[in-house]
Structure formats: structure tokens, C-alpha cells
């Protein structure tokens, strides 16, 4: 599908909020993602991104520039055509009880939890990063969240897992690095744990079985079509 890049904001160094025209009108649910065909000749595969926000005519992503593929996407000029596939991933159609749900994101994992959050209400949200690089992003996207940083210059110093006790919840929705998802698993054994998984993907549409995570019964789940929302308590993190 062809979309047009409508807006590009570099919120922080190498962190971009990109907004595209939305041509495909299939309903979009939390947890779903899109994939972008980029022009880098060095790297071939599309790059997958959580759908951050969408309206009838627009669709946006939050992207951290980390390599050739994302670099090439960051260089797309406004008004240019972009080849995107969406919505991808298994839709999450449940309504979560806002009072009892804790949302946790590590770094660019913000993009993975954002679509689950009812922005009209106050929510229980913890955003963590390593060096303070997501502070401004958190401020911009959430009217109220607990922002913590491992080494950044912040009031709350530490990891997201150091602050879980501040909240009462029976469900956790989390997205971030595997170490974070694993650390959370150890602390939320008796709660519902929805892990919004990120993985390097080849196709993103279920053709190749390249993007799997292992469950505790020694079987694999595809992040692209069984997920990205998977049972965080059953995933075996290495």
C-alpha cells in the first residue's frame, strides 16, 4: 500500500515521530503494527513498527534510528510515497480494566504499549530508560506517567522493576528489551502479563517463522502473527 509521509518530528536525537496518510481502512486494534519498505540497498527487509496512533486518515509511528534501515526511513522527505503494509499482527480486542492495569515500557517500547492506553483517562504507566533519552518523549506522549531512568538526571533513578510496588494492578502490559521483560516476569508471576513482543522480522506476515519466541512448553510462537501480544509469563527469555 502506498502512503505519503505527512509529518516528521525528531523529538529527541534519533527518535522520530512519523505520520503517514492512511489509505487502508481496515480496523486497527491495539498491539498491531505496520512494516515499511525502505530504500537502503544494503538491507533488504521491511522494518516493523508498532502503530502508535491512527485516525481515519492518518497513521503514525515512533521510531528510533538504530541502523541502516531506520536511517533510510528517517531520510524520507515529506510528501514522499512510502510502501507500507498494515495492519499486521493479531489484534488485541479485549477491553482492559484501566484501574487494574499497569503499563510498562522500556525505551522505544513506549511505541508498543501506547495503543493500549486510553488517553482520555489517567492510567498507571511506568516509562523507563537507560540514559534519560526518552524523558522528553514520555513528556510529549503521556500527560501523566512515572518516568524513571537508570543513569539519567531524574528524580526517580532506577529500573522500571524497582517501582512496581507503587501500583496496584492485576494485569501488566509491557514492551521493551528482553532483559526488562524477563525481570518483570519474576515479579508478576501471579498476575496477568501481556508482553508486547519485539523481534527482528523477515516477513511480518507469517510466511517464514523467523521471528519466534519460545514458550515454557518448548514450542515457539510467531511474534508477527501469533503475537505481538503474547503471554509474558510463559515466554522463556534467554
Amino acid at each position: 500500500m502506498r502512503s505519503i509521509l505527512l509529518d516528521k518530528q525528531e523529538i529527541e536525537d534519533n527518535i522520530f515521530l512519523l505520520t503517514f496518510s492512511r489509505e487502508e481502512k481496515s480496523e486497527i486494534y491495539p498491539g498491531q503494527f505496520l512494516s515499511i519498505l525502505h530504500k537502503s540497498r544494503e538491507k533488504l527487509l521491511r522494518r516493523p513498527f508498532s502503530i502508535l496512533m491512527h485516525t481515519e486518515n492518518k497513521i503514525s509511528i515512533l521510531m528510533k534510528k538504530i541502523g541502516r534501515g531506520t536511517e533510510s526511513i528517517s531520510e524520507i522527505s515529506l510528501g514522499s510515497e512510502v510502501d507500507m503494509l498494515y495492519p499486521l499482527g493479531k489484534p488485541f480486542k479485549e477491553n482492559l480494566d484501566n484501574e487494574k492495569t499497569l503499563f510498562v515500557a522500556g525505551g522505544i517500547g513506549i511505541a508498543g504499549i501506547y495503543s493500549f492506553i486510553d488517553r482520555g483517562r489517567n492510567q498507571n504507566i511506568i516509562i523507563g530508560d537507560r540514559d534519560g533519552e526518552f524523558e522528553r518523549v514520555a513528556e510529549k506522549l503521556f500527560k501523566d506517567c512515572l518516568y524513571v531512568s537508570e543513569r539519567g538526571d531524574t528524580r526517580r533513578k532506577g529500573r522500571v522493576t524497582d517501582f512496581l510496588d507503587m501500583f496496584e494492578f492485576n494485569t501488566i502490559v509491557a514492551c521493551g528489551p528482553k532483559q526488562m521483560l524477563n525481570a518483570l516476569k519474576k515479579q508478576v508471576q501471579n498476575k496477568r502479563y501481556l508482553a508486547v513482543c519485539e523481534e527482528i522480522m523477515a516477513c511480518g506476515v507469517g510466511l517464514c517463522n523467523g521471528c519466534v519466541v519460545k514458550y515454557d512448553d518448548n514450542t515457539f510462537r510467531r511474534v508477527c502473527t501469533d503475537g505481538p501480544v503474547l503471554d509474558g509469563n510463559r515466554i522463556v527469555y534467554e
Binding site: 523481534e199 527482528i200 522480522m201 523477515a202 517464514c208 517463522n209 523467523g210 521471528c211 519466534v212 519466541v213 519460545k214 518448548n218 514450542t219 515457539f220 534467554e238
Partner: peptide, 9 residues
């Protein structure tokens, strides 16, 4: 069951 991750690069 297939190979352990990583599976692609």
C-alpha cells in the same frame, strides 16, 4: 520444533 533464536540476520 525448529531452531533456537536468532533465526534470521
Amino acid at each position: 520444533i525448529g531452531n533456537e533464536m536468532p533465526r534470521i540476520m
